[in-house]
């Protein structure tokens, strides 16, 4: 079987396993329900056609993505290799004529595909609701929002796979994933806020430090996608718009891609070297 064939097959297996796993079902259903509820809520406040809520629905969706997608990506990624190693099936798989790189890439793509399908379903249902509720949304911006969420999911999956490749046990991997999630979603920002308050960081430094966090890069890109500008982000947003201009979106997307490529390489490095049992 060709390397690509193996990747495809392992990916397919991973999609199957994800779709059949309780955790994934819980995540996917939770995401869809929350997305629906948020679009419903935003539309409920709508005051007149034409304005009805894309901006706000989209903002709610961004908030939802910020919280849930990193959680999903990190924990699914972290559980992937560690779980199979613990059950022993990883050895069975690697005893076949496949390379570890093929297996890891296949698992990564499969999980990405499954997560992407969950996001697409959530976004799709929310879009149906928005349209039925009389809300308007530029399909382009909405699609861009989903695309960015997918990039974030892929970055978080890659990071989860690093944890999974390095961890000894599933419980340790899950714990590390949760801690990483907490750090990226809350602690990093809070720390940066505190630093900005006490040290009066220059706006450029603040912006740079913030977007090093992939979740921040996603948030800023998403705001650009919804509102067409980063005005809402105040001086730092204005600085970003002025210095980067139209390159802002590619730069932020590039940051997310970087957060995908680097962790994935690290995961490969670890996975290729260590013992499977």
């Amino acid at each position: 079987m060709t390397p690509l064939g193996v990747v495809r097959l392992v990916a397919r297996k991973e999609v199957r396993d994800a779709l059949r796993s309780r955790w994934f079902q819980l995540y996917a259903a939770g995401f869809a329900i929350l997305a629906l509820a948020l679009s419903r809520l935003s539309l409920g406040e709508a005051t007149g056609g034409g304005l009805a809520g894309f901006g706000r629905t989209a903002a709610s969706l961004v908030n939802l993505v910020l919280l849930t997608v990193p959680l999903m990506g990190l924990t699914l990624g972290a559980g992937s290799l560690a779980g199979e190693r613990e059950r022993g099936t990883l050895a069975t798989l690697l005893a076949q004529p496949v390379t570890r790189t093929e297996v890891l890439v296949g698992k990564y793509l499969g999980l990405g595909l499954a997560l992407g399908a969950a996001l697409a379903a959530g976004f799709g249902l929310a879009a149906v609701f928005i349209a039925l509720g009389g809300g308007g949304a530029a399909a382009g911006a909405y699609g861009l929002l989903l695309g960015l969420a997918l990039l974030l999911a892929l970055a978080m999956l890659a990071l989860g796979l690093v944890i999974s490749a390095a961890a000894r046990r599933t419980t340790a991997a899950t714990g590390a994933a949760l801690f990483t999630w907490l750090g990226l979603v809350f602690l990093g920002d809070l720390g940066l806020m505190g630093t900005a308050l006490t040290m009066r960081l220059p706006v450029a430094t603040l912006l740079l430090l913030a977007v090093l966090n992939p979740i921040e890069a996603y948030r800023i890109a998403a705001i650009q996608a919804i509102t067409g500008s980063v005005d809402v982000l105040g001086p730092a947003g204005a600085y970003a718009a002025r210095t980067l201009g139209d390159a802002l979106m590619p730069a932020l997307a590039g940051m997310l891609v970087l957060w995908t490529v680097v962790p994935l390489s690290v995961a490969l490095l670890i996975f290729n070297r260590r013992s499977i049992v």
């Binding site: 079987m1 097959l9 297996k13 396993d17 059949r20 022993g88 099936t89 004529p97």
Partner: peptide, 23 residues
Amino acid sequence: PQQLAYYEDMSALGLLRYLAALR
């Protein structure tokens, strides 16, 4: 293997088909 570790939720045939494809 000594400790048989196969994907327990697959059918016997499904499992063999998956492994057959890999091989």
